[in-house]
Amino acid sequence: MRNLTYFIATSLDGFIADPKGGFGDFLFEGDHMTALFEEYPDTLPAQGRQALGIDAPNKHFDTVLMGRATYQVPGGLPSPYPHLRQYVVSTRLTSTPPDVEVVTDPLATVRALKSEPGLGIWLCGGGRLAAALLPEIDELVLKIHPIVFGKGIPLFAGEFPTARFTKASTRTFDTGVVFTTYAKEENA
C-alpha cells in the first residue's frame, strides 16, 4: 500500500502561507535548497526543474494531490507537475489540462490511490485539505523555516481528529531551516 505524505514548508508558528496565500517570505536559497533538489526532485514544479536543469527520476512520489488554491497560486502553471499524476480537489474548478484531474471527494480519491501500486502520494497543500485528509496521512515532512508569520494559512485548518505522529528524523541546515519527518503512530 502506498503512503500519503504531507510534504510542506511551514513557519515556526505553523503557517504554510501568509494570509493572502503567499509564500515568498520562505527561504529559497541556501543549503536546504540543495538538499531539496537532490533528495526530493519530484516536488519541484516543471518550471523550476527546467530552470535548474533537473531531469532526475522521481524518488518518493509519482502522484500529487493539492487543493484548488494551491493549484491556482498566482503565476502558477496549468500543469505544474507533469512528471507526476496530478489531482486537484475542488468543487469550483471547471477546466484543467488533460493531465490534471479535478476530484471532489479527497478521502475516496486518496483511499483509491493508496490501493494502487506505485510510489508515494504527495499532499502538496493546503491547510483545509490536510485537515480533511488527516486520517489518511501516513507521514509528515515539514520544512520548518525560521520565520514567524503571526497569521496566515495554518498547517491544518478546520476541525479534525487528534492524530499522533512519531519523529522519524530531523535535519538542520545552515540557513536555519529544519526538515523534520514524522510517521503516523500505528495505533493512532
Rank of each mutant, 00 (worst) to 15 (best):
R2D: 00
L4S: 01
L4T: 01
L4I: 05
T5D: 01
T5N: 01
F7Y: 10
I8Y: 00
L12F: 08
L12T: 09
D13W: 10
I16Y: 01
D18V: 05
D18N: 09
K20F: 15
K20M: 15
K20Q: 15
F23C: 04
G24K: 09
G24F: 03
D25M: 09
F26A: 11
F28E: 06
F28I: 07
E29M: 15
D31P: 04
M33P: 03
M33C: 09
A35R: 04
L36N: 04
E39F: 09
P41T: 02
D42K: 12
D42N: 13
D42M: 11
D42Q: 13
T43R: 01
L44M: 07
L44P: 01
A46L: 08
Q47K: 15
G48D: 14
G48L: 15
R49P: 05
A51F: 06
L52W: 13
L52D: 08
L52G: 09
D55S: 15
K59W: 08
H60V: 02
H60T: 05
H60A: 03
H60W: 03
T63E: 11
V64F: 08
G67Y: 00
G67C: 05
G67I: 05
R68I: 04
A69M: 13
A69W: 07
A69F: 09
T70L: 02
Q72K: 11
P74E: 12
G75L: 10
S79C: 12
S79D: 13
P80D: 09
H83A: 05
R85K: 11
R85S: 08
Q86E: 07
Q86H: 05
Y87K: 03
Y87C: 02
V88F: 08
V88C: 08
R92F: 12
R92T: 15
L93N: 14
L93S: 13
L93T: 13
P98R: 15
E101Q: 15
V102T: 13
D105P: 00
D105E: 07
P106Y: 06
T109S: 03
R111M: 07
A112F: 06
K114M: 07
S115R: 15
E116R: 15
E116N: 14
E116I: 11
L119H: 06
C124V: 12
G125Q: 02
G125L: 02
G126M: 07
R128A: 14
R128D: 10
A130T: 02
A130S: 06
D138L: 03
D138Y: 04
V141M: 15
I144G: 04
I144F: 05
I144W: 04
H145L: 10
P146R: 14
P146M: 12
I147H: 09
I147K: 12
V148Q: 10
G150D: 03
G150M: 05
K151Q: 15
P154S: 13
L155N: 02
F156R: 01
A157K: 15
G158P: 03
E159D: 14
F160V: 02
A163N: 07
T166K: 13
K167G: 08
S169K: 12
T172D: 07
T172G: 05
F173G: 06
F173M: 11
D174Y: 01
T175E: 03
T175C: 08
V177W: 01
V178K: 08
V178E: 06
V178L: 09
F179Q: 02
T181V: 08
Y182E: 02
Y182I: 01
E185V: 06
E186H: 10
A188N: 08
